[in-house]
C-alpha cells in the first residue's frame, strides 16, 4: 500500500489560532494537548511496547518526523478512570480488557510468528491486527475477551478518538477545526469560506 497523502497539503487548522475561529477555551484545550503529553502511568513496560507498536500500525505516520502521540493518551485515560459510559457485558472492565488484549496480541504473535508483537515486521503486525478485528484468533490468552469487540468496540475507537482530536490529523482531512465564535457562512457543496481549507487535490477527479 502506498503512503498516505493528504488532499490538503499546506492547510493547517492551527493557522487560525489567533482568528475568531478560536476562543480561549479551545486554545486552552489544544495547548494542553500539544504541550503536556502525559507520562505513562497505567501500563507496564511489556504492555507499553505492544501498545505503541499497535498504535503505529493502526495509524501509521511514516511521513512525520514527530508522529502524533496516541499511546500516552490511552494510558492517561485509563489511569484517570475516564469512562466511555459503556461496558459490554461480554467484556472485562476497560483497564482489564486493555491489559488482557495487549497480552493476547503478544501471545498471538508468539503463536503465529514465534516473536514479540513489537518486534515483528509491519506486515506481520498487520496480519495479527486484521485477524483480531475479524475475530479470527487462536491464542488461549483471548479467553474471556471477544477479539472483535475488543478491537472494534474499544481499541480502534480510542485510537481514532485521540488521533482525530489532534490538529495535525484534522488538517490532513481538511476539517474546519475550531469554530467559536466564528462558524461558517457558505453551506453549499464545493463552496468554502475563506477560513476553511481550499478545494482538495483528488487524484480520482478531474482538476
Amino acid at each position: 500500500m502506498s503512503d498516505f497523502r493528504t488532499p490538503y497539503p499546506g492547510y493547517d487548522v492551527l493557522a487560525k489560532w489567533a482568528s475568531p475561529s478560536w476562543n480561549d477555551q479551545t486554545r486552552q484545550v489544544v495547548r494542553e494537548r500539544l504541550l503536556n503529553i502525559p507520562r505513562p502511568r497505567f501500563f507496564n513496560e511489556a504492555e507499553w511496547s505492544v501498545l505503541t507498536a499497535l498504535c503505529d500500525r493502526i495509524i501509521p505516520q511514516p511521513e512525520r518526523a514527530e508522529p502524533v502521540p496516541i499511546a500516552p493518551f490511552i494510558d492517561a485515560a485509563l489511569f484517570e478512570g475516564r469512562g466511555t459510559g459503556t461496558r459490554f457485558a461480554e467484556m472485562p472492565p476497560d483497564g482489564a480488557a486493555w491489559r488482557q488484549g495487549l497480552a493476547a496480541l503478544d501471545a498471538e504473535a508468539a503463536l503465529r510468528f514465534g516473536g514479540r508483537f513489537a518486534g515483528l515486521t509491519a506486515e506481520r503486525q498487520d496480519a495479527i491486527i486484521a485477524a483480531a478485528v475479524a475475530g479470527d484468533v487462536t491464542a488461549p490468552a483471548w479467553e474471556g475477551l471477544p477479539p472483535r469487540r475488543f478491537m472494534r468496540g474499544l481499541v480502534l475507537l480510542e485510537i481514532v478518538a485521540i488521533y482525530y482530536a489532534h490538529p495535525a490529523a484534522q488538517s490532513e482531512i481538511g476539517f474546519g477545526g475550531s469554530t467559536s465564535p466564528r462558524g461558517y457562512v457558505r453551506l453549499d457543496a464545493g463552496r468554502f469560506d475563506p477560513w476553511e481549507a481550499g478545494p482538495g487535490i483528488w487524484p480520482d477527479r478531474e482538476p
Binding site: L14, R27, V30, L34, L35, P69, A71, P72, H166, P167
Partner: peptide, 11 residues
C-alpha cells in the same frame, strides 16, 4: 516511548 516529548507544532 517513541512518542514522548514530541512537539508536533508550536501552539
Amino acid at each position: 516511548s517513541p512518542c514522548r516529548g514530541s512537539r508536533v507544532r508550536r501552539p
